[in-house]
């Protein structure tokens, strides 16, 4: 599968009915095949930026380019075959089975009134295997545990066979073991298929561990972007999160020890 880039150029984003931009003047290029982690405090614009990159919200000004082309020019269905996005906590209808949910991932490929193709079935099976859901295919999504449910949703977007995958806090509200399970599976997807991943995430150590680069958002603006060990320094944490901390890098692992809350120093 070809790796695909995604770019935002001087993008301003705002939600319907709000007269303030949630994302301001962000220019960011997601390189083909990389894992980019979006980090930042609550309300810093991570989810909004993901929605903008995924064309869920149109930029008020600026351009989002998918594979070099203005995303507005690409038809919704055509885009959905190449880029998938997963909101943080999507609502699932009562009684829908895992199998049915993952099949929905094939929607952008299916013509009206036609049956499920061999290709569809293969993509669904691959997605279910890669999220380790084989034993739960006929279970209702609403009967699964939090971690299983998250995997079911990720399987749905994987069945889309996207080149670019945008995930909004895929580890939120999961226990430690399931957080790592989900992240490991996502890294595997990136390694085996070359899928470009953009993931918003709160845990900085996890972000550093899985991401090639980290983008730090602060009050709707891009504060910094680059390799995790370069970006996630003590100064950044003080500026952006308002915490005094010690950051250690050991054997290419990054450790953050937070010492206590302070006041955000700079207003950007």
């Amino acid at each position: 599968m070809t790796a695909t880039s995604l770019e935002a150029e001087r993008v301003f984003l705002r939600h319907d009915g709000v007269d303030r931009d949630a994302v301001r003047d962000v220019t960011l290029r997601v390189e083909p095949g990389e894992i980019l982690a979006l980090v930042g405090p609550n309300g810093s614009g991570k989810s909004t930026l993901l929605a903008g990159l995924g064309r869920q919200i149109q930029p008020r000004s600026g351009v989002v380019r998918f594979d070099g082309e203005d995303a507005r020019r690409i038809r919704t269905r055509a885009l959905a075959r190449r880029m998938a996005r997963l909101p943080q906590d999507p609502a699932c209808p009562e009684g829908l089975t895992v199998d049915a949910l993952v099949h929905m991932g094939r929607h952008p490929y299916q013509r009206f009134g036609h049956g499920t193709s061999v290709e569809d079935e293969r993509a669904v099976r691959d997605a279910i295997v890669s999220m380790e859901l084989q034993d739960m295919r006929s279970r209702g999504v609403d009967t699964l545990s939090g971690g299983e449910r998250r995997r079911a949703w990720i399987a749905m977007v994987l069945a889309q066979r996207p080149e670019v995958l945008l995930l909004d806090e895929p580890t939120a509200a999961l226990d430690l073991r399931h957080q790592w399970q989900v992240l490991d599976l996502l890294v595997q997807v990136n390694r085996t298929r070359g899928t470009t991943l953009v993931i918003s995430i709160h845990d900085l150590e996890q972000a550093a561990r899985i991401a090639d680069r980290v983008a730090v958002l602060y009050r709707g603006r891009l504060y910094a972007v680059g390799a995790p060990e370069k970006i996630l320094g003590e100064e950044t944490l003080l500026d952006v999160f308002g915490v005094e901390s010690r950051v250690l890098v050991e054997d290419e692992m990054l450790y953050v020890r937070v010492q206590g809350p302070g006041d955000p120093l700079r207003s950007l």
Binding site: Q56, A84, L86, P87, A91, C92, L96, M104, H107, P108
Partner: peptide, 15 residues
């Protein structure tokens, strides 16, 4: 079936 999902998710699936 896809319409049973919320708008953001259905939109992401190309609807």
């Amino acid at each position: 079936d896809v319409m049973l999902l919320d708008d953001a998710t259905a939109g992401g699936l190309g609807m």
